[in-house]
Simulated scan of single mutants.
Amino acid sequence: MDQLLQFLADNSGQLLIKTWEHFYISLISVLLGVIVAIPLGVALTRIPKVAGFVIGTVGVIQTFPSLAILAFFIPILGVGKVPAIAALFFYSMLPMLRNTYIGVNNVNKSLLEAGKGMGMSGMQRIRDVELPLAVPVIMAGVRVSTVYLIGWATLASFIGAGGLGDYIFNGMNLYRPDLILVGAVPVTLLALITDLLLGRLEKRATPKGLRDSEEAI
């Protein structure tokens, strides 16, 4: 314990930098996943014959070992943060893509017909009817992806991307439990805090009527 406290006292500035690196890598990966997966999930509801193949392919990619994905991008993108973000982006896709497809696909069809009867265009129905009603399911996918990526981002240390994984793997190599704790505890706190914040965002984004009906159940 004394060794741990001494390390924190001597390296608090570096710990903050590593924590920011870890969060930055995870955040960018998730944002890229949101930008790609949610529109793609909506598009797949319009072409159900292709949806199974695309979601299945993404699911197969998800089964690849994390280190294998990281190693795959090294010859293409080199080492550092860019290949780490690219690999984590692929891992973020499946929960968000699948949940978006399921959430939008399960929207009450009578509501869509009502919107069509009111003269709403296809894009307006997506924006004003389908996405708001699918928010709880979509956000569940985003939360799962984000929490997973914060944990997986520790592996980015293997390709020089930095982050809290540096402490964990240095601790393993040097047989220093204090270093492992210095890396692992902030990763856990980051995941818990991010999940809490995304949960609050989900409540704010969910239409009030839908939120009230869920609370009444």
Rank of each mutant, 00 (worst) to 15 (best):
P48L: 09
R125V: 11
V54K: 11
A51S: 13
D10E: 15
G78C: 06
M96T: 03
P136N: 13
I35N: 02
V34A: 08
V137K: 12
Q6R: 15
L155Q: 03
G160M: 00
L210M: 10
L8K: 08
S121H: 00
Q6N: 15
N106C: 12
A43T: 01
L27P: 01
L112N: 10
M120I: 04
D166G: 01
I76W: 11
R143M: 05
Y101K: 10
T206V: 14
S157C: 07
R46H: 01
P177C: 06
L174M: 09
G165F: 08
V129N: 03
Y175N: 13
E113T: 06
D166H: 06
Y148P: 00
G183W: 11
L70Y: 05
A153V: 11
R46S: 00
V60P: 08
M172P: 06
S213I: 08
T57V: 15
G183D: 11
E202G: 07
P95V: 13
I85M: 01
P132G: 12
L112H: 04
A184K: 03
N106F: 07
R98N: 11
L196P: 00
S213W: 04
A84M: 06
I69F: 03
S26N: 07
L189S: 02
D166L: 13
F53C: 13
V187K: 02
L112D: 10
I193P: 00
I74W: 01
I180S: 05
N11A: 03
V42K: 00
T63C: 12
I74R: 02
M120H: 03
L131E: 05
G115T: 07
G80F: 00
D10G: 09
I25N: 04
R46C: 00
D10I: 05
L44F: 04
S26F: 05
L44D: 05
W20F: 12
V58Y: 13
R211Q: 13
V82F: 10
I61H: 10
F7G: 01
Y148N: 08
F89C: 10
L210H: 08
L97D: 11
Q124M: 08
V137Q: 13
R125A: 05
I69E: 03
I76L: 15
V147I: 09
L111F: 11
N170I: 08
L131W: 04
V82N: 02
P65W: 15
I25M: 14
K49Q: 01
I47T: 08
V79D: 00
A84S: 09
G119R: 02
L201C: 15
R200G: 10
R127G: 14
W20A: 14
A71N: 08
M96C: 11
G115Y: 07
S110I: 00
